[in-house]
Design a protein around this nucleic acid. Structure first.
Lengths: 356, 356
DNA sequence: TTGTAAGCGTTATCAA
DNA sequence: TTGATAACGCTTACAA
């Protein structure tokens, strides 16, 4: 991509470097603060780190000096000695096109993690790990102890990395049960319960030929949402009708066509993602079916668009930001040496609109 | 939110810590590698950092030792002496509800930045800065030189922080021209050009009463898209008709109603965001107008949903991921002491679908 | 309660 | 080309 303009030129050096206080251009160190306050480095360190064993007047003097000099601790120096970095990594599978699709799952997790870490005064380091190279980078970086813990957002397939890190003694939390069977703590939303509620809603409303557009079977979300569907229709003695997609709209269109071909008389569809449900809505309309009169449709996610589809989409809402927060809280507890639940499931909720 | 389950308990200590190679549980240091390879620390450091002045056989021996021990450099120690951190901060305004809306702007920038930094082997530190407290955290952290540079994603209002950091000699790049007039390098998409193309498209198709749903006037994107509209209708000798929204669907609905009330005969609408355009589509339909027959609609963003609205939305596509990448490249150049353009504008493109 | 001093694991400057 | 050695800025026993 060729940028359009850019005549003006700018450089760091053009800007005179403004210095606060009376120090030189050098960033003030503990040493400088200590000199100004007339105490030792150790004492300044104690005050800065909130030790209670420092006399009140001295604390005041130190704080004044810190203020005056604009002192900010050098984190590198600190973590060199404390062996902590006060930052944690959030690893996202790159899965290039899908990572940041409309479903807002990753942004939601990022946001939740950022909020929670902010409260804990820790930094969020974001890492993409789609390519093998990226994978290796993440492994090097995290095993190198450059972060105090690692959050994994939704793994494709059977990623061995979380298990490996956990075995190395690095705090790890995953979003969703690791598929390789590794014993790694995870947090997830209650896929099965949410889907069950959705399907029961359909049954209650008299639907009897309930199909599903399932998600990819190499992802926990895809697997569990399908389980929820199968268990519920089976429990009601209804037949199952399944087509597979990969959570995207394109795949939803194809799957909906398959379902209509397989059973033109189906009267309901549960789609494992709102994007697929959205595509189903359109495909059904194109096939001359009215929603919800002829066919009821329920999605999963409750993306913002769900309220704006034609008709507005009934869907299972999952607490994505809260998922990010819960993962982070668990990680911080593990890093602090506490015991945590191996699995944590967050409740989902059926949001009834017009499509079912 | 009360989690549903969690009987199983997990703790770091339950897992025996697996140690690679023959070392103890301690992470190997340069010293250990040096001993094993039979050379000095300095030499190992040279090899690790790719110095060319080391004899080939020694390089090999060192590399073997590194491999065997699973040595990974301690970044804290390194940055303590190099004064670099090899990480850069991406600051997002929190603006709680809107930061991660359907428009994908922030996720796109995050993704672009992450890609580019990955290539440069640097880390991305994400910071939210909505609250005054968050603002202060960001300032402390970045002025504390804990990152080599700061990327600002879309500022609300006249944020003084970018200018302040730049004056302190910290490399900074903004997305969009800073509204407080600070001389800070920025990258943006060509809002004015994109909107002009959209409005000209409407005019070319015979539209004469072209309204706009403008974005918030405290954001560059809102301001410039409105400028593009006004300049273009003025140049064509057409009247202007403006209602204001804040880029959200809700605001789009209200604005569209206002416009219809103000001029029931309007025959086209340019909305400054796809979300507002989406709402306009629905509002027009509810008001009995056919799109595009009675009223043509064009949006801005080209979000994924745009292809799935009723009718599919004609819109101005902006290269969001590329924006994140370009910002990052500029930042890295500044940090490397190079001169960069003060402003960089990325081209937009009109995507014609059915709504206009 | 405060200060002294010994590292933490690198890189960089000088000699050799 | 390689090796000592001195920082880098902080925390933390241990002593006073």
């Amino acid at each position: 991509m060729r940028p359009i303009c850019g005549h003006l030129v700018w450089s760091l050096l053009d800007n005179e470097v403004v210095v606060t206080g009376m120090t030189t251009a050098q960033r003030p160190t503990l040493e400088a603060v200590a000199r100004l306050a007339g105490v030792s480095r150790a004492t300044v360190s104690r005050v800065v780190n909130g030790s209670t064993t420092v006399a009140e007047p001295i604390q005041q003097a130190v704080r004044r000096a810190v203020e005056e000099l604009g002192y900010v601790p050098n984190l590198a120096a600190r973590s060199l000695v404390t062996q902590r970095t006060d930052s944690i990594a959030l690893v996202l599978p790159e899965a290039a096109t899908r990572v940041f699709s409309d479903d807002q799952v990753f942004p939601g997790i990022i946001r939740g993690a950022a909020q929670e870490l902010e409260a804990a005064d820790k930094q969020l380091v974001l890492m993409l790990a789609g390519s093998p190279a990226g994978h290796e980078r993440v492994e090097r970086y995290t095993t190198g102890r450059h972060v105090d813990g690692v959050l994994f957002a939704s793994l494709h397939g059977e990623d061995p990395l979380p298990g490996r890190l956990a075995r190395l003694g690095i705090p790890v939390v995953c979003s969703g049960r690791p598929l390789d069977g590794a014993e790694v703590p995870y947090v997830d939303v209650d896929h099965v319960g949410g889907v069950a509620e959705a399907v029961r809603h359909l049954i209650t409303n008299g639907r009897r030929r309930i199909a599903t557009i399932a998600g990819p079977q190499d992802m926990v979300a895809g697997i569990e949402r399908l389980i929820g569907y199968r268990e519920t229709v089976a429990a009601a003695g209804l037949p199952e009708l399944i087509a597979y997609g990969d959570f995207t709209r394109e795949s939803g269109t194809a799957a909906m066509r398959q379902l209509l071909a397989a059973d033109p008389d189906l009267d309901a569809v549960f789609a494992a993602s709102d994007l697929m449900a959205h595509a189903a809505l359109r495909t059904l309309r194109e096939a001359g079916r009215r929603v919800p009169d002829d066919v009821a449709v329920i999605g999963f996610d409750d993306i913002e668009t769900a309220a704006y589809t034609e008709p507005p989409l009934t869907t299972v809402k999952q607490p994505i930001v809260e998922l990010g927060r819960a993962m982070t809280r668990q990680l911080l507890r593990i890093a602090a040496g506490e015991q945590v639940e191996l699995a944590l499931l967050l409740p989902t909720e059926l949001v009834v609109r017009d499509s079912a």
